[in-house]
Amino acid sequence: MLKYLETVFVSFVKEVYGNISKNWGMFFAAITVISFSFFVLQLILLVYYNMENFKNKILSQITIHVYLKSDVQPKQIADFMYNLDKNEDILSATLISKEEMKKRIKDELNITYSDLPINSVVYVKVKKPEFVKTVSEEIKKEKIVRDVVYWQEYAEKISSVFDLIKKILFVVIVILALGVILIINNTVKMSILSRKNEIKIMNLVGASGWFIKAPLFAEIFIVLILSSFISHYFIRIGYGYLMERFNNFVFFNLLPIDYLIFVRNMLIFTSIIISFLFVYSTIEKYLKKLAEDE
């Protein structure tokens, strides 16, 4: 059994190696084109994720200012704070009491207004930027709340602009992904056509279907994986340069370079999925077509 598996493995490796070395030019062309497509795809993915990160950073800076009424009792404030603590969308809620507020004004502005109508304030931070609006509306309904203030318009504008850009980028990513699939489809087709005679002979001498298909499949798989690594290498150089040059300059930080590993792994994972779902059926399709043309 072991001997048989060894024969299978050796024959398979020889076949894949033979295919690649015989069609080196096409192999190289496929890697170049797919690497470039993957490069652009990764670039857009990085822009996408950095924008998402940027938006979240901006929105997470937004604090909801909750101004309480003047006549509220300590017990009511305690209940209110307890409810805020229980709310799962809220990250933190900090109470600044009436006295504390007066002290801050005195310390910071060096003035004392004994009769100033200053009330307690609660600063609320939410876990996700998109919770700002809903949490604010919920808080506003509380009886002891006089007013709730946050940069509503600003937050909404930022959200809508970023969401629009994200949608456009998503469409571009889908188009690019379709482009990559088209290139892979063409590579499979060319690969089969360039081996037309060989496949015909393999068929005649009784090579089983998988023996014909597996090396073709492996070749495309290698192209995809190599392209993922090559494009990753170049994007890493470029991104590293950008980080070094601009990260301390711009007012937000780019995502760390390790994030690229995530993007690369995602690409490799997608390549594997594409290979199994798409490449195999494409090989079958063109082999069938080849047999019909004979």
Partner: peptide
């Protein structure tokens, strides 16, 4: 040797 190789005959 090709038909033997593709039908996985031992070397």
């Amino acid at each position: 040797s090709y038909p033997l190789e593709v039908t996985l005959v031992p070397m």
